[in-house]
Design a protein around this nucleic acid. Structure first.
Length: 217
DNA sequence: AGAATGATCCTCT
DNA sequence: GAGGATCATTCTC
């Protein structure tokens, strides 16, 4: 797993600050591996002048023809078609009428699979995040974990919406990409997924042990 | 065409 | 800890 550690590289705008985007090959692997290797990686979103970045601390894996909890279960529909497409693209959907959720498509094209990004630790653009989340939001203060400790909150704070559905994550020019973890591998906790009604026994949620930005213990 | 459901968040008790 | 918000998507008739 160590081969995906970030390598310094000069190049396109924005890359100097964060490092090169993870490659298509990174995402093309088995979903459980990608979900774990994304812990500690940095998610970067640029929207005009506003750039936000956060370190991913919690993920969930959804894959396989027999996973009824996955949006890819069954057959291709207008909503889930991105999951069936090539890896390294964003799958963003709206749930409960209010909240957008960010996923990264994994596995070779044709396999419906993705990793849900559930929580992250803010690194860059904290004032922007707080403004997007709203001053009245519970625990949304600048120094608070409430900014990005949940899938809906993370998307709101980073300005990630359904407009990014299908976006290619491997382009250094953005608007959305991910940089490999630098430093030692984190200690990972594996548990059941949150908020689903099917396939509850599967241990396909991963988070960095002890990280304060994890959504739930 | 109508109804049910949902990979959540927030407020109130 | 429980309930409401809020609507796109999917399934059923």
């Amino acid at each position: 797993m160590g081969e995906w550690v970030a390598v310094a590289q000069a190049g396109a705008p924005g890359v100097a600050a964060f490092g090169p985007p993870l490659s298509r090959e990174f995402y093309a692997r088995p979903t459980v591996e990608v979900a774990q290797d994304l812990l500690g990686a940095v998610l970067v979103h640029s929207e005009g002048e506003a750039t936000t970045a956060a370190r991913i601390v919690e993920t969930e894996a959804y894959f396989g023809a027999d996973d009824r909890a996955s949006h890819g279960y069954g057959r291709v529909t207008p909503r889930n078609r991105v999951m069936y497409g090539p890896p390294g693209h964003a799958y963003v959907y709206r749930i409960y009428g209010n909240h957008d959720m960010l996923n990264f498509v994994t596995e070779p094209e044709g396999e419906p699979a993705a990793v849900l990004i559930r929580a992250a630790a803010p690194l860059v653009g904290l004032a922007t995040m707080a403004a997007r989340r709203g001053a009245v939001a519970k625990g949304a203060g600048l120094a608070s974990r409430g900014l990005t400790n949940g899938p809906g909150r993370l998307c709101e704070a980073m300005g990630i919406t359904r407009a990014l559905n299908g976006a290619d994550l491997t382009r250094p020019e953005g608007p959305l990409y991910v940089v490999a973890r630098s430093g030692p591998p984190p200690r990972i906790v594996r548990t059941t997924r949150i908020g689903i009604t099917h396939e509850r026994e599967r241990l396909q949620r991963y988070y960095i042990d002890g990280d304060p930005f994890v959504s739930r213990r």
